[in-house]
Design a protein around this nucleic acid. Structure first.
Lengths: 216, 216
DNA sequence: GTCTATACGTGGATAGAC
DNA sequence: GTCTATCCACGTATAGAC
């Protein structure tokens, strides 16, 4: 499956959708705009994707898979070359995410899909995210736990959620901090990553509030 | 302006909208549903609010103002009765937000408005949020800075953004952590607040990466 | 299998009568 | 201020051409 023919209708729809979603959001982009940009018929979108919602999810999944691979790869490298280094583990979690979020082509759309799961009561999307994103989180949970002994699993998961939240916020570029005009996007992103890693490192190293393990 | 007459059309629309938005999201709630519940004519919503988007913002603003007042009140109390206590300042920031997010009536709708600003390219809403929410953040920035001397303003604001992100995530109940069936919502929320405060406290106390002040 | 033309129902919004 | 009637864009479904 998947003919290697030049650029299929399906691919053209995905490309146009990603670009338009990133620029104008989901509600702000009609399927008629998408099919017009992709130069295909309006009905093609429902033929290939079933619904607008499904199209959104497919646009997202492509990039999500890339990011997951980048994260797990960087994590593996950190584990083998810098075992026990919490900062390296956190970097593997944070850096690929911020890199993707900043991508001019896909970044905007990517961040918005996650936010959409908040914004609308969309349990399907939520479940999809937790099924896949959850696995990555648990992998990082193990790695972090190995760097910070004496932290209960419950504490660890609470703090992972806080990190994920702070990261999502940073990906959406939503806070008070704005990039100064005289520094590049890449430099700003690098700074954000370093600051977040530093902040989270201290957070993870804070004493456990619910010690469930021995004091050996 | 604002006749104290029993319950105006406008109020009934606001009430019905808040309930339905919280239950079914924004896209999942039509104005016809809202006006039907409020027992007013479909055109009334556009007469009183101009657009659906504006109605959403008004629903949000009511609760946002409540939360802001609660936060600033609790902050003032912390400053006077426990000066220099970082945990008390963080509690003033975190607790009113989680309390509101959990409110069965308004909580769902409230969290979703914030998420909507991520999810859709809505610069008006974004600006509105930064104008108001930004002021509160800066106030808390001052208070936190007073508790953690030696932190540059830039560091402080980065970390405030991280806290706000983690808090938003927690408000949306979005992470791995799920409330166990045998503990109440109130207890779970209280636990979330304590965990987040503990995590953030350590984060704020981490050494500054860009020391711009003396080492006195 | 793929794609097109076309139609349906619902949504938010508006103009104008009362 | 409020309501009725109406408009137009939207997502979606279907029938049939290639």
């Amino acid at each position: 499956m998947g003919k290697p023919a030049s650029f299929s209708t399906k691919d053209r729809i995905l490309g146009a959708a990603e670009e338009l979603f990133a620029q104008h959001g989901f509600a702000g982009t009609s399927l008629r705009q998408v099919t017009s940009h992709a130069d295909v018929n309006i009905a093609a979108v429902n033929y290939h994707f079933g619904s607008k919602e499904n199209l959104v999810n497919e646009v997202f999944r492509r990039r999500m898979d890339e990011m997951t691979a980048a994260r797990l790869g960087q994590l593996e490298q950190a584990r083998s070359s810098q075992p026990g280094d919490l900062r390296a583990v956190l970097a593997a979690f944070v850096e690929p995410a911020l890199a993707l979020a900043q991508d001019r082509q896909s970044g905007g759309a990517f961040v918005r899909v996650i936010a959409r799961a908040y914004a609308e009561k969309n349990d399907n999307l939520r479940k999809f995210l937790s099924d896949h994103y959850g696995h990555v989180l648990r992998e990082f949970g193990k790695a972090i736990g190995a760097c910070v002994p004496g932290l209960s699993k419950e504490e660890l998961y609470w703090r992972l959620d806080f990190l994920a939240g702070a990261l999502t916020y940073a990906m959406a570029d939503f806070g008070l901090i704005k990039r100064p005009h005289n520094i590049s996007e890449a430099a700003h992103r690098s700074k954000a990553a370093q600051e977040l890693i530093h902040f989270a490192e201290a957070g993870f190293r804070a004493n456990a509030r619910t010690p469930d393990s021995s004091l050996t």
